[in-house]
Design a protein around this nucleic acid. Sequence first.
DNA 1: GCCATCGTACTCGGATATCTCTTGTCCGAGTTACGGCGG
DNA 2: CCGCCGTAACTCGGACAAGAGATATCCGAGTACGATGGC
Lengths: 151, 151
Amino acid sequence: MKLSRGVEWGLHCAVLLAVTPDGPPVSRQKLAAEYDLPEAYLVKHLHSMVRSGILQSTSGPNGGFRLARPPADITALDVVEAVEGSAPPFTCQEIRRRGRGAAPPELCAEPCTVNSVMTAAHQAWRDSLRGVTVADLLERLPEGALARSRP
Amino acid sequence: MKLSRGVEWGLHCAVLLAVTPDGPPVSRQKLAAEYDLPEAYLVKHLHSMVRSGILQSTSGPNGGFRLARPPADITALDVVEAVEGSAPPFTCQEIRRRGRGAAPPELCAEPCTVNSVMTAAHQAWRDSLRGVTVADLLERLPEGALARSRP
DNA sequence: GCCATCGTACTCGGATATCTCTTGTCCGAGTTACGGCGG
DNA sequence: CCGCCGTAACTCGGACAAGAGATATCCGAGTACGATGGC
């Protein structure tokens, strides 16, 4: 199990954009240079966030990215699932219905217990991430770091 | 983010072995045939569980696998981390210290907030899995399925 | 002074290459139960 | 009847191959700002 590195990038960029939510868009060059990230690949992830309605992007000169919603309305889960996709990490293959010990359909009315446990864990994970917003992250930033991020 | 398919296999096999905890070892052939799984690859995962102290394996004729502990002492987390490894899915790259906006070391005394959030979520996931034992899974099995699994 | 046009700067989206991890297979080596054989 | 030995069944562990997904990179196309020129 491994999360895409883009998750870290997306979260940091979201916090950075939240510093000046109503300022001009930040260009992809600036965003990439800010953390020394591969520009083209970073943008791929940012586009996923645009498609998910977290970011807005404007074309042309002085274009770039900005938050599509107030920082308090964007949860960490929003960002993570935008970048990583919302497919659960565990997908039940229903192996109980296969092989020598295959359970007949009438015993499979209830969802597979193994699946239930893994799904519950995934929900706990999502709930934890849903409880934190980009505004919270911004607030927890050390004083100095905040000042440095402003233009 | 994707979990290895072996997690499902490991959990189902653990439940199957828990049906007769004190019976003779179950051969790898039987285990694989039970769910129609690739035998050699399934065994790879079962070995991981042996190394983690969840299963015991005995060589020679009539050899095979059995639980190393009572089912109530084996949590779903034990199985999942035995198969998948216990490395957290999110590893902080400390990108806040890189690039144009690199934070100086004195601002990095506190752990990265992004990292904290992701780590907390991972803990929530682990806690959820830790709350369920193999004995619980066995108990939730439908009546019929339990009877079918016995020799 | 105002408006249309053009160039430039920037982004968008897809195609492509590379690398790692998962999935799966295979084979030689080691281990143990069982049966046969000699004392 | 008892102990020894060979065989067969079974597992152990690593090497190896194929496929999927993550990690980038690059390029043509589209878009908007700003400058330039004509009215």
